[in-house]
């Protein structure tokens, strides 16, 4: 278990970086001055790339955390992911997609591949 002092350090580090990013325009720039084009370009590209990266990172975590038979060699992850993406394409309701996908995953690893 991580020590309480270290938990505080994680929270403060994350908050400091987040707040610093939010204050960049107010600290550095005046109204009407254009954004450096390279920053604009990276910002536009980075958001979808980071989300795709985090998605794979999560899948890696699920697959590593359990022995292969516990999730049917990836069937639990794949089925739950199909439910999430399918529902989101169909209904466009993030909460519904997340709850349904998570429920499917929990049923898989608790009941089908216990």
């Amino acid at each position: 278990m991580t020590s309480t002092a270290y938990l505080f350090a994680i929270v403060l580090t994350a908050a400091a970086v987040t707040i610093l990013l939010r204050s960049v325009p107010f600290l550095l720039f005046r109204e009407g001055k254009p954004l450096p084009p390279v920053i604009h370009y990276i910002s536009k590209m980075l958001s979808p790339a980071i989300i795709a990266l985090l998605t794979f990172y999560c899948f890696g975590g699920h697959l590593q955390e359990r022995v292969p038979a516990e999730h049917g060699f990836g069937i639990a992850e794949l089925s739950a992911a199909i439910v999430v993406v399918g529902l989101q394409l169909w209904k466009r309701n993030p909460l519904l997609s997340i709850l349904a996908g998570t429920a499917v995953y929990m049923i898989f690893i608790q009941k089908i591949f216990p």
Partner: peptide, 8 residues
Amino acid sequence: NFRYAMYG
């Protein structure tokens, strides 16, 4: 959270 630096 890099995108937040653009919002301001």
